[in-house]
Amino acid sequence: MRLTPPLALTAEVWYPPGRQTVQEALAASDVDSRTARDLGYTSLPVSEDVAPPDMAVRAARTVLARAARAAGGVSLLAHASVHHQGHDAWSAPHYIANELGAGDAVPVGLLQQCNGGAIGIELAVDRLARDSSGAALVTTADRFLMPSWHRWLTDYGMAAGDAGTAVLVERDEGLATDLLLHAVTTRAAPELEVMHRGDDGLNGGPLEHSPMIDVRRPKRDFVRTRGAETFTKTAHARIEETVAACLAEAGLTRNDPRLRYAVLPRLGRKAMDEAYEPPLRRATDAEVLDLGRASGHVGAGDLNASLAEIVAHGYLARGEHALVLNGGGGFTFTAVVVSRPERRPARPAD
């Protein structure tokens, strides 16, 4: 989807102060040395006492303040998550909207696995295309605690860090903003949903297949019955197609000098080496950037956290572009192209 004119983005990620280093995880036998080496993380943020929706609220408050926008001007609040949000049979998006004072927003919950935050941005774009009533706010938050989720061992190819993110999506008014969004592109491979289900039938309640969420078991079933190359071949094709289409929609070529970085998801190093980086490098000559070594995979918020850190750490000079790639179980792959705007006047507060 090409955005002409581009939309304005303000992005923030909130990490809890607590961390578990890989050395601490090894000492506690939470992870073995070979797995730690394959993952390549240095630490994971750990939230013991801040629930996921409250992490999202903290990130969102910072975004709204920095954008000089009142919560009452938000028309859509889309919240994405992977894991438990703090209560059962309850709506975390409505809680977040209420905490922020976004009483006119339509709260929507997204269950798109690890691509939820990226899909939230795409839905926000669609909303702004047909509704002139206000900005859209996309939040994500996940916390991975035992006994239901072992942050190092529940899944292959990633370890899970706790974080909340917020991205404000609005029309560009020519005033100061973090980033400009030029294109967003999504491709799906629903034939790969079985990778997270394996040979399991559909059960009647949570955790009936195992007392702890265990994504490794269905993945072993998938590899045994279909072969790892089935996933790799499909993922490579969809990722390369997604990246190439997103660059074209943004009006960029694969070797465009304006394109400074191509940003990876926050998966383990081996998983990205095998599944994500090869098709990304085939689709663009931009320098590949990995921002997840100290955060781990932050559930539904990888792409959104990377948008925030591109800004916070000054990766882009004015006028430079970045493509940010993400994927999630199901499978769905999304890429966005953003740029750092030229110098602009500050925004007046709402």
Rank of each mutant, 00 (worst) to 15 (best):
R143D: 10
F144T: 07
L145F: 13
M146E: 12
M146N: 14
M146G: 12
H150D: 08
T154R: 07
T154V: 15
D155L: 05
G157C: 03
M158S: 03
A160W: 07
A160C: 10
G161N: 04
D162C: 06
D162S: 08
A166T: 02
A166V: 04
V167Q: 02
V167C: 04
L168Q: 04
V169T: 11
T177I: 06
D178N: 11
L180S: 02
L180Y: 05
H182V: 03
V184G: 01
R187K: 06
R187F: 04
A188E: 11
E193L: 08
M195W: 00
H196S: 13
L202V: 13
G204Q: 11
G205P: 01
P206N: 10
L207I: 05
S210P: 09
M212N: 15
I213F: 02
R220L: 12
F222S: 05
V223K: 06
T225E: 13
R226K: 09
G227Q: 11
E229Y: 15
T230K: 11
T232K: 10
T232G: 13
T232L: 14
A235Y: 05
A237R: 15
R238L: 10
V243Y: 05
A244F: 01
A245H: 01
A245I: 03
C246N: 06
C246D: 02
A248Q: 00
E249I: 05
L252G: 00
T253M: 10
N255R: 08
L259P: 02
V263R: 00
R269A: 14
M272V: 08
M272L: 12
E274Q: 15
A275E: 07
E277N: 15
P279W: 02
P279D: 01
R282G: 03
T284I: 09
T284P: 01
